[in-house]
């Protein structure tokens, strides 16, 4: 397979390398990132499932790979993971549809 694509799966493992061009900001980001995913009021599994849903919303292939593995490693089931993706889909769909109210408002404004 040609490596000349925008997304290479192996680049996920190189995420840490972003520190190379800006070590200080890189460190700050990864320290923060690590803290965010630690067990808190939300469990690690809940955080992984939220991350999985968000990954689908931002449509980041690296994130989807990372949080599919991450969710499995935190003990999530296939059912839980698909429900998380449906949350992303529902919010995205809903975000379009809720603007339908605006369309209706405008329509009513324009029509006799």
């Amino acid at each position: 397979m040609s490596k000349k694509t925008y997304y290479n799966a192996e680049d996920l493992n190189k995420f840490g390398n972003i520190s190379e061009f800006s070590p200080e900001l890189g460190k700050k980001f990864f320290d923060y990132y690590g803290e965010v995913f630690k067990e808190g009021e939300l469990t690690e599994r809940e955080k992984a499932l939220i991350a999985l849903a968000v990954s689908h919303t931002v449509q980041c292939p690296y994130c989807i790979d990372a949080y599919t593995s991450g969710s499995l490693e935190k003990g999530a089931t296939e059912g839980q993971m698909m429900e998380a993706v449906h949350i992303a889909a529902a919010i995205r769909g809903g975000a379009s549809l809720v603007h339908g109210v605006q369309m209706m408002n405008k329509t009513k404004e324009l029509l006799m």
Partner: peptide, 17 residues
């Protein structure tokens, strides 16, 4: 033990579940 290519979740949380 995981049914796939990933590491196990925390023993404590799995036990509860």
């Amino acid at each position: 033990n995981p049914s796939g290519a990933f590491m196990p979740a925390s023993q404590e949380s799995l036990q509860k579940e």
